[in-house]
Design a protein around this nucleic acid. Structure first.
Lengths: 233, 233
DNA sequence: CGGGATGTTGAGGCAAGTCAATCTAAGTGG
DNA sequence: CCACTTAGATTGACTTGCCTCAACATCCCG
């Protein structure tokens, strides 16, 4: 199912079956630590279900979340000597395929198409991070939240009606640490764009985006319509 | 010369000569626009000399600099349909090799080692951006500047004495737009760490880092000692 | 039906932004 | 070689958006 929109799409049968032959199952319960800030990379994952939080802890106790990984996304780097510098934790029950570093490198070597596909995913991710850098460097709380909600929408609602309920798998603290704000500021930002009529909040963990053009304008975000495989490490 | 530390290092002769056969010369004068925010990607560059600024302009007139590209670094993506969303400008006279998209893809297809090498460069870049995201999301002005100076140091001083004069090819406005601050805040941050005795400023465009451990501690940065090829797009 | 975790609201402080003036350095032409 | 110009950098006074701290509300789960 996931195959249709993730890494495997646009790939030849040979590459897919080669990948299949080295794939391992990897499941994690909500709250499980998948790898830690200083672990070396051992595996690369393709998530089929659930959400993962990538975060870094600073010396002063502050935390920065560098990304959220969901169904269809890729998690984990390849280069051996480098450690992740991020902690990956399951924020809901997670199902994923895992590929051992050596296995994956061998398959990449034999299947240039797959390697190029991965390279594209990586450069797309760099592009997406420019967006996040711009958000953190130059936008105010309300804009950051609007941009965040729109990104959530675009990444995990490929289907149906765009203004229906959108579940947020992460809590306010996570949103705050992702957007470079405090929980309180996030809460106030929700209030702000709710007052403008841009969103509804049936529950704290569910938003309905009721005015997409308004949100886009507030967020000063360019439309990036192409669905994208996100990559985290 | 650049070959020794850039993309080509660790590569086999076959891949190097294949790259050589499709390489074009590309030189730009200081101030030249190499590509613009909405151009499609046509070429990938490897810089041999000079510095490039990557920036995005927001609707409200604010600017975010997403990176600086210097000798040995790679500039430009590969995926055709995506446009850069960044403007690349030469901030000093620049010499580079250029590779046409189609040519490069063909060579990548035939030389898995090169493709994997590029993939590594891309994942390293993602990693480096996590650092920048952490900086923008969770650090104060002084820390940001300290981190910036240390990164400059690490990226373009592979040689000699680490506390000698380090030239800054970019002006204060660029540093501000890179660090998510205003010029005035950058100026005050310079003053702040100069007062602490961490740096000397013989000229505004030259710093001497006189207390590396102090700067590292202030910046709350982990040592990332491995020299790295940076990638921008 | 508690009780801990999570989310919201309010009051006050502070780091960085804004606006404005001054200083410095690098040209440029007489 | 020096006055003049100009872009870049610094400094100061004031404002503001977000953080901090604290109280309160709500959700969730046994």
């Amino acid at each position: 199912m996931v195959r249709s929109y993730s890494l495997c799409s646009e790939l030849g049968d040979a590459a897919i079956s080669a990948l299949g032959s080295i794939a391992l199952d990897a499941d994690y319960e909500k709250g499980a630590v998948i790898f830690d800030q200083n672990d070396p990379f051992e595996k690369t994952f393709v998530v089929t279900n659930g959400f993962i939080r990538l975060s870094r802890l600073l010396a002063n106790g502050k935390r920065q979340i560098t990304g959220f990984i969901g169904p269809g996304d890729i998690l984990g780097g390849l280069r051996q000597q480098s450690t992740s510098h991020c902690t990956a934790e399951a924020i809901s029950d997670v199902q994923a395929c895992a590929f051992r570093r050596g296995d994956l490198l061998r398959v990449l070597h034999d299947h240039p198409d797959l390697c190029i596909r991965l390279l594209f995913a990586a450069t797309d991710e760099i592009e997406a991070q420019y967006e996040q850098i711009t958000l953190l460097g130059r936008k105010m709380a309300g804009q950051r939240l609007a941009a965040f909600l729109l990104t959530m929408q675009r990444r995990w609602r490929r289907d149906e009606h765009p203004e229906s309920a959108l579940p947020l798998p992460m809590g306010r603290v996570d949103i705050a640490d992702y957007l470079g704000l405090t929980v309180e500021s996030v809460s106030r930002a929700f209030h702000e764009i709710k007052d403008k009529g841009y969103i509804r909040l049936p529950k704290p963990s569910v938003v309905e985006l009721r005015n997409l053009p308004g949100l886009y304008q507030l967020a000063e975000m360019e439309d990036m319509p192409a669905p994208r495989v996100s990559m985290g490490l």
